[in-house]
Amino acid sequence: MTFPASHLAPTEPERNKEAASLIRQVGDDLNFRLRQLHEQLLEQVPDVDRIACALYEPSDDMLRTFVHSTRQGVAIKGYEFCLSESASLSGLAASRSVRILDEIADVVNAANPHSQWLLNEGYRSSFTVPLYERQEFIGFLFYDSLKPAAFSKKVQRSLEVYNTLISLTISNELNLVRSITTSAQVAREFASLRDFETGNHLERMAHYSRLIARELAPRYDLSDEYIEHLYLFAPLHDIGKIGIPDSILLKSGGLNPEERALMNTHVQKGIDVLERMIGEFGLNTLPDSQVMRNVVAGHHECLDGSGYPNGLKGVEIALEARIIAVADILDALTSHRPYKEPWSVKAAICELERLVERGKLDGDCVQALKCHLPEVNTIRDRFKDS
């Protein structure tokens, strides 16, 4: 018996395509709002062809592409750069001054991918504005034009309002996200959560998750906004453990079936805690809050349906949850535990591959780690437990 094509079960590539489409919907809220502001700006300043924001992370001195509105050509994504390696940008951040380039080709060379991209895309002039939040430097706002000397004093004055609007839009969302993560940390400390979820574990997990997501970005069309939110949300994955008794959480030996069942309730407890925080901070209408929910709800699901709490299979499990699962297990294997010594990264990757063969973990996520073993080792060493 044959069926119309519309009734056939979707193939794996089709399911991946659908999943990527959903990711774009839930992970591009700031990009969408920036595009709206860009459209309004063009009515006053028609020569601004690109607006982009790069966020700064003090822990590793890196600038990373975050959100953008690019009218034509190929947008640069997944790019990071050490701030201290640029005297010009470091000076802007320190002095709180802006930079005008009337002819980009006369000033920059193709020494780094960003400069090469600017030249390849034909951008002629630019206006760079450092961003601050509570007196702390948080990144840069870049305006680029295909025309030379597009950013006159008059244009700069017209952009002042948009600088403020864009800065507030970005900082407000980051503040909401940080309020959630800070509240989660306070809740953990208040509950005297003393298992292996140390601050350094959470830091390593977040960096591993971002590393995986950046490698998967081309295949799943992941935005830089999605990747940075995943990085920020990763430490929330086991927040439900604040509701698990210490007698189970800190038990040195194996858990019996009753204890294991109670331990497994930490996922639902985490969902309940998160939903309460989302409601209190008014995040219900933000699409990015769904990424946060998926991180907490799905990180113990397995591709073969043997995970919990819902026994989801394959791409029924959100990509962000699949990424977190791999990052979490990697860190557990390579960290000291009362019952074991830390594994080498090489041995841990081999174990992850065995779990892929058994149908537990996402092979793309594990392969992403294999492609970046030096970075994995750097993250592990930088954020060692004291």
Rank of each mutant, 00 (worst) to 15 (best):
P4E: 10
H7R: 11
L8R: 11
T11G: 14
P13V: 02
A19H: 14
L30R: 05
L30H: 03
F32V: 08
E39K: 10
P46N: 13
S59R: 12
S59Y: 08
L63Y: 12
I76S: 07
Y79N: 07
E85A: 12
L89A: 01
S97P: 00
S97G: 13
V98C: 05
D106S: 15
D106E: 15
V108P: 00
V108R: 03
A110S: 14
P113N: 12
H114V: 07
G122M: 05
G122N: 09
R124M: 12
E133G: 02
R134K: 15
V155S: 10
V161A: 14
T164H: 14
S167P: 00
N172Y: 06
V177P: 02
V177L: 12
S179G: 15
F190C: 08
S192W: 07
D195W: 10
N200L: 11
L202W: 01
Y208I: 06
R214M: 15
R214H: 13
E215K: 12
P218F: 03
D224H: 04
D224N: 07
L232M: 14
F233T: 05
P235H: 02
P245S: 11
K251R: 11
L255P: 12
L255F: 13
N264I: 00
N264Q: 07
N264G: 05
T265I: 07
H266C: 05
V273F: 15
L274C: 03
M277T: 04
G279T: 04
L283W: 03
L283F: 10
L283Q: 09
N284G: 13
T285M: 04
S289P: 05
V295E: 06
V295C: 10
A297N: 08
G298E: 01
D304K: 14
D304S: 08
G305F: 02
Y308N: 06
Y308G: 01
G311W: 02
E316G: 10
A318Q: 14
I324M: 06
V326H: 09
L330C: 09
A348C: 09
R354W: 01
R358V: 00
G359H: 06
K360C: 06
L361S: 04
V366C: 06
A368N: 05
K370E: 14
H372I: 00
H372G: 01
N377M: 11
N377R: 10
T378P: 00
R380I: 08
R380Q: 13
F383Q: 03
